[in-house]
């Protein structure tokens, strides 16, 4: 039996990219840490590390949800506005509408999920590009936030509510536990559940998935719903931590979130990647911001650096694909 060319093992270049997929981003992360640590010893101060990972958690929980959506070949630009909207709702329940801890947690989460569901529903049923749909909802929910708050932040949360964003479990900030919990659950879901497997299948080839009997639209809507829910969770954490529902909360989060996912090796084309990469990607983004802060670099530079990192990450993904096809 002839062995066809395509079957003769895996080429070296591709092996490099498989290697890079697995540990490249982790190596890059460690190198960046060592450099910042060398330039300013405060970087490795435990307090600073805690500060970084707490900061990262707020972006990170959204990035976990975004990983699902991007794996499906989608995108969601509205996450930052959803953070602000759910945050102001939570603050409203804390301060203005009776102060129930239960409602101020559950309602924002449900609303986040509902917004995600709507984004997914309109996108799939209407056959629209998620970029434009979520660009719309980005504006809608920023506006809704301002409307509800009547232009003024809502401050003064109960101490129980403040635990979500500012509490510690032993030495570990509570948001970090929430974030890692999300990563682990999402990691399991992607690897072991039908939902996860089908996300890769749909992202890899939507038509083949459809023809294999997969209810493609349902899974897409589900992924957007999960992302909306997690954006709501992020809104809770941020509001709790700031002790205030802020009008500009979450502004620009979409960049950090999408950057975390892409830097973590999930392909914008869908079908490839995973949530552990996103974890490292989020940490890298957080560390770069923090490190530049510590070095006294103007914050404006951070935006420029982050932008460059994103483009670099996408470029690497592109190269990976190119070498695979030749």
């Amino acid at each position: 039996m002839p062995v066809f060319a395509e079957e003769r093992g895996i080429p070296v270049v591709q092996r490099f990219f498989i290697f890079w997929d697995k540990v490249g981003i982790l190596l890059a992360f460690l190198v960046v840490c060592v450099i910042f640590g060398a330039l300013n010893p405060v970087f490795f101060n435990p307090l600073n590390i805690l500060n970084v990972i707490r900061q990262v958690s707020i972006i990170g929980v959204i990035a976990v949800g975004m990983t699902f959506v991007i794996l499906l070949g989608g995108i969601d630009l509205s996450v930052g506005s959803v953070v602000a909207f759910t945050g102001i709702i939570a603050a409203g329940f804390q301060v203005k509408w009776g102060g129930s801890l239960f409602l101020s947690i559950v309602i924002p989460l449900l609303l986040g999920g509902a917004i995600g569901f709507t984004n997914g529903f309109v996108t799939t049923k209407g056959g629209l590009h998620p970029f434009i749909v979520t660009l719309g909802s980005m504006s809608i929910f920023r506006g809704a936030t301002l409307l509800i708050a009547q232009g003024k932040p809502i401050s003064g949360m109960s101490s129980a509510f403040r635990f979500i964003g500012a509490g510690m479990v032993g030495p570990i900030p509570f948001p970090v536990i929430l974030f890692l919990g999300c990563v682990i659950i999402a990691g399991m879901a992607l690897k072991r559940t039908v939902f996860g497997r089908y996300i890769y299948a749909i992202g890899g080839n939507e038509e083949a998935a459809l023809l294999s009997g997969i209810m493609v639209q349902r899974y897409k809507i589900a992924a957007f719903t999960v992302l909306g829910f997690l954006s709501g969770l992020s809104g809770l954490i941020l509001t709790s931590r700031l002790n205030s529902g802020e009008l500009v909360a979450g502004q620009g989060y979409e960049l950090d979130v999408i950057a975390s996912v892409v830097i973590g090796g999930t392909s914008m084309m869908g079908g490839e990647g995973g949530v552990y990469g996103t974890l490292v990607g989020a940490l890298l983004i957080g560390v770069v911001s923090n490190g530049l802060n510590l070095l006294g670099v103007q914050p404006y530079w951070q935006m420029i650096v982050k932008g460059l990192i994103v483009i670099l990450a996408v470029l690497l993904d592109k190269l990976k694909r190119r070498f695979r096809t030749t």
Binding site: Y200, G204, N205, A208
Partner: peptide, 9 residues
Amino acid sequence: KTQGLVLLL
């Protein structure tokens, strides 16, 4: 390739 398989998988 475009309808039968998910080539990445």
